[in-house]
């Protein structure tokens, strides 16, 4: 019984690695020299979270979570587009 708890399936391992990478990327969001750098970091984190949600949907057999992953992807794209439009007009002036 104990051994089952020690064994981690490869998908869970991949999930934790991706989460760890996205935690490291918070450095870019906090200390980015300019605001587009922060947007790039945030966008990267959101895509990684989308992948994590898809893996969770497979691991828990809750396939409806894929719908939520698509929603997160689209809302993230919308936010990035609006910020990019703000920068096209001259940015922080």
């Amino acid at each position: 019984m104990v051994k089952e708890y020690l064994l981690v399936s490869p998908f869970e391992l991949v999930m934790f690695i991706v989460l760890f990478t996205s935690i490291i990327l918070i450095y870019r969001v906090i200390f980015g020299p300019t605001t587009p750098d922060r947007i790039v970091g945030f966008n990267t984190i959101s895509t990684k979270i989308t992948v994590v949600i898809a893996i969770l949907a497979f691991l828990k057999n809750e396939y409806v979570l894929i719908d939520l992953a698509i929603v997160l992807l689209m809302v993230n794209a919308l936010g990035s587009l609006i910020l990019a439009k703000h920068f096209e007009r001259g940015g922080e002036k």
Binding site: M74, V75, L78, I82, K85
Partner: peptide, 9 residues
Amino acid sequence: VSVILLLTA
């Protein structure tokens, strides 16, 4: 979201 995407672009 889908309408705001069109409106933004």
